[in-house]
Amino acid sequence: MEFEREALAVAVTANLPVILWGAPGTGKTSVVTALGAAAGLPVEVVVGSIREPSDFSGLPVLRDGGTWFAPPRWAERLAAEGGGLLFLDELTTAPPAVQAAMLRVVLERTVGDLALPGEVRIVAAANPPEQAADGWDLSAPLANRLIHLDWTVSAEDIAEGFAGGFPVPEFDVKGTAGPAAVAGAQALVGAFLRVRPDLVLAVPDSPDRAGRGWPSPRSWEMAARAVAACEHMGAGEAVLAKLVLGAVGEAAGFELLSWRRNLDLPDPQTLLNNPQARLPERLDRLHALLAAVVAYVHADGTADTWERAWTVMAQVARTAPDVAAASARSLARSRPEGASLPDSMLELAPVLRSAGLMR
């Protein structure tokens, strides 16, 4: 259970909505409330089986001559605190109408006409439908908004917990990855999807599979944020695998992890300082490298870095003009104020014309 606990802590730190799947009585509620207490976060527990759709979509009331969808008290308390941990328990006992009302809460942090603070973390828990009282499969739209973690316990876990207390992961909710790291991870995932475009969207064809993690642009974005968070926090490969597979499913997730493991790319900053360095020969690696360079330039925001990036683009264009064209379009859009057009762009004239950036 060690990796599951750490994966949960990483998800909460990175503000990624996560759901714990496990049999009744395995301590899911206890670990979430303990996690909130350890992080100093107020915890609101909302049990799906005893809620109505209006508990998430708001109750319509007249206000100032119009209709106001009033939020429930649990949402008002989280808003007043400025953050916290919302624990949605027993999701598979919530009927489809209630699950549908939860969609905006999980994705947009909106309850009725109340916008929850961005610092509200969301953790859910569910029993497999066959083990839940009057259980329902999780709807595909709701499942695709969550990272799915299997919560299992062993006799050794329980024995050690009874003897010395059950451990709670240590983490800092303010110690998450910055925008540059997230952009770099998104560039990495984007480069992978160029190689495997068939994995961008793969909606499962059965309710039980649709109720877990599956590939979509939304879940790939969560996977990218998980990659950035794990790299920033120094989490191991086992933790990263649980989060990525929990976001996009096993088949797509294993492909991304294997592809990432075999990339062995130079650091974008190192390459910009030495643009004549040897570049990868494989096209998928070139896509990944240039995407990382563009993400780094965008996050850096300085004219000098933007200008130096065109030297790298020109070098790639000599052997792989199609790869350079795709990244040149993104680089041109991120031109900082005051940046001049470097001489290296002249070498890219044919490429820029093919990308629609030059006449």
Results as ranks from 00 to 15, higher is better:
H287W: 12
T305F: 05
A226C: 08
T270S: 15
V203Y: 09
L289E: 00
N274S: 13
F254L: 15
E255N: 12
V297G: 03
D198M: 08
L199G: 06
R261I: 01
S219A: 14
A291E: 02
R308F: 05
A210C: 02
M233S: 12
L286P: 00
A247D: 01
L283E: 15
P280T: 05
A238N: 11
S206C: 14
V203D: 10
R209A: 11
V227W: 09
E281Y: 09
P217K: 07
S219V: 05
P204T: 06
D267C: 14
N273H: 05
A309S: 04
A202E: 14
L245E: 12
A202C: 10
Y296K: 03
N262E: 14
A251I: 07
P204M: 06
V297C: 06
M222H: 13
L256R: 03
W306C: 02
S219N: 11
G234T: 10
P266I: 05
G253Y: 01
T305R: 01
H232L: 05
E231D: 15
A292H: 05
A228M: 06
N262F: 03
E250C: 06
L279I: 01
R260L: 09
L289M: 08
A251M: 02
R196G: 06
E307R: 05
E307K: 04
V195R: 15
N262V: 03
